[in-house]
């Protein structure tokens, strides 16, 4: 091996080192949300529901991950198909309405919707048109 090729090999080694450092930095920075968030509590915020209300249209376990899909379905069927009545799993009927049905029990938007949405970092734009109970008064 000549001196020249040797130095070229050495250069390559140096590059490799730089590349590894770059990759570590890159992945380190990009995974910040995961490891920075891991220390703050995993229980989620405390949410408030009005006292003495009946059960939700569907179970808590269904609503927690699916309420946005349900609302999406509702708005489409009300606006586009004029279908305004929701029949839940146990056969009970509800008006498909965010402001009239949901907000009836979840009347405190700040302590129910916002708390969780803020925690999750999502910004639904329902409220730029639909009125929460506080605004209604």
């Amino acid at each position: 091996m000549s001196w020249k090729t040797l130095s070229r090999e050495k250069e390559k080694m140096n590059d490799l080192f730089k590349i590894v450092i770059g990759l570590v930095l890159f992945f380190g920075l990009f995974s910040i949300p995961f490891w920075a968030g891991s220390s703050s509590g995993g229980n989620g915020p405390e949410i408030v529901v009005k006292e003495g209300t009946e059960a939700c249209v569907e179970s808590k376990e269904f609503m927690r991950p699916n309420h946005m899909h349900l609302l999406d379905q509702w708005r489409d069927s009300v606006v586009r198909d004029n279908d305004r009545v929701y029949t839940n799993a146990s056969g009970k009927h509800f008006e498909k309405s965010l402001t009239k049905t949901c907000l009836n029990c979840h009347s405190n938007k700040e302590e129910f919707c916002d708390r969780c949405h803020d925690y999750m970092g999502v910004k639904p734009y329902c409220w730029s048109c639909h009125l929460s109970s506080e605004e209604q008064i």
Binding site: N82, T99, K100, Y125, C129, H130, L131, E135, Q136
Partner: peptide, 25 residues
């Protein structure tokens, strides 16, 4: 004076009479 039973609109959308579809319902 806002009517709480009907949504308002966001900027950037078109609107017009809906023959009171919400009342007909």
């Amino acid at each position: 004076k806002i009517n709480p039973d009907f949504p308002t609109r966001e900027k950037g959308v078109v609107e017009k009479c809906n023959f009171c579809a919400e009342r007909l319902a």
